[in-house]
């Protein structure tokens, strides 16, 4: 288990507090809550994009919260995927590997494996702007895991997909997380995500308190 402690965020007149929360360090841990409950804010805090003095995120001996953003070695997929539109699917993934310092040989090996698992070979040379929703989602996932991240953080990655594509995408995510053995935190409000993906579920209400601050 990795442990999150002392997370306090003041934002837009609210204070969100998580005193202590244990996240699975293998499989898929789902954080569930209604829209606007602060799930994405918690995720951004773990990434390092929110001011959270005193936050501790212990994974083994390492306090990830104390590390700068680029040193945390996280894989991230946002709701809108945010691919680099001027690059092809392959180049998006290659860029991620390059900045992580993955050697060319290792990248080729990992790329062959991941692109097969995610069925990317057909569209890998297409400019990401021109990809379909499902293809973008798979490219974003490949980009997030190519660098062997310590943790995979997913912020409602299927919400922009049609229902039939979502099922296929969930299946792919489950397979790849298991095969790559990457601990994953998935934030969602979709019950089907919980049903088909979760190894453990946490409700926002169970871990977080939200207080309106006086002006």
């Amino acid at each position: 288990m990795s442990t999150v402690e002392n997370l306090k965020i003041n934002k837009s007149g609210f204070q969100l507090t998580v005193d202590r929360w244990e996240i699975l360090d293998e499989g898929i841990h789902v954080l569930m809550g209604a829209s606007g409950s602060g799930k994405s804010t918690i995720l951004k805090a773990l990434m390092g994009f929110e001011q959270t003095p005193g936050l501790i995120w212990k994974m083994g001996d390492i306090n990830l919260a104390a590390l700068p953003i680029d040193k945390k070695n996280l894989g991230v997929v946002f709701q809108t995927w945010d691919l680099f539109p001027h690059m092809t699917a392959f180049e998006n993934v290659q860029f991620a590997a390059k900045v992580r310092g993955i050697s060319a040989d290792e990248f080729q090996t990992r790329w062959s494996l991941i692109s097969q698992q995610l069925k990317m070979t057909e569209f890998s040379n297409t400019i990401s702007e021109q990809l379909s929703g499902g293809e973008k989602q798979r490219t974003a996932l490949a980009r997030a895991i190519i660098g062997k991240p310590r943790f995979l953080l997913l912020d409602e990655p299927f919400s922009a997909l049609d229902a039939d594509l979502r099922s296929e995408a969930r299946l792919m995510l489950k397979e790849i997380v298991r095969s790559q053995k990457i601990p994953t935190l998935l934030v969602t409000h979709d019950l089907d995500d919980v049903k088909y993906l979760s190894d453990k579920v946490t409700q926002m209400a169970d871990i977080a308190s939200v207080v309106r601050l006086k002006k």
Partner: peptide, 21 residues
């Protein structure tokens, strides 16, 4: 913004992000 954030979490340096993204 989000593309830059993702590049940062990947570990890309400022000039790398500027040049490539």
């Amino acid at each position: 913004k989000n593309q830059i954030r993702i590049a940062q979490t990947m570990g890309a340096k400022p000039f790398e992000i500027l040049k490539s993204i």
